[in-house]
Amino acid sequence: MECKDIRKLLSPFVDNELGAHDAFTVAEHLEVCAPCQREMEALRRFDERLRVAGQASIEGVAEVRANILALFSPWTWARRWRGVGAAAAVLLFLVVGRQLFSAPADPEATAFGEALITEMQLNTAQPFSLAWLDPHSTQDVLRQEGLEDLPNLGPAGFHLEGARICYPLSRVFVQLVYRSRHEEVSLFVSRRWTRPLSGVSKREGFTIVPLGLRAVFLVSKEPLENFADVRELAEEEVSALST
């Protein structure tokens, strides 16, 4: 190889990115070519200077780190939770599929359902808008509310992924998020809610399915799998409404 060919290989050579054959060829050439050897050394020296310049500490990293950590601090929910106090009722909302829908609920239920949908959408659109609780904090808050068995209410094939405190229509709820491979289900729990919803309703691609006096399932746009139990309950609800 001539010098002009070798010099095109110096860049990957100093980066240790040449294959063994080319690296050997370049090394052999450098042994006998002083100008190319000087250029390789200059390249290495400049890379080092650029590396040092680039990696020099920049100001304000601690503040940025604190801001990011604060977005998902478990204490964020705790401060909000203390201000509201204990809740009064339990509602269960699950996210399932598009198969279920029926007559609209009353205005308050409609507004409340839309607030829940907003909470669902926040899960993915703004995951830090409300803090996720770590497992220990989740158990604490559920125990505090006498709801420690609720995480086991998730449908078969789903695992409890996380929990957070949310405020649909200014009411305090614990949102338990269950996930299977392709689906997400949220169970909204509150002891503050005293008025049962009635009727299955569908809005914005989500379907809210109230189950009995204390449980409401929220149905998502995603396809249903492994949800026979939930679907059966919802169908019973629809059947009861139609009669």
């Binding site: 001539e2 010098c3 110096l10 250029e39 390249l43």
Partner: peptide, 9 residues
């Protein structure tokens, strides 16, 4: 032509 890729700056 052969010119320095990276002269000793």
């Amino acid at each position: 032509k052969v010119i320095p890729l990276f002269p000793d700056v």
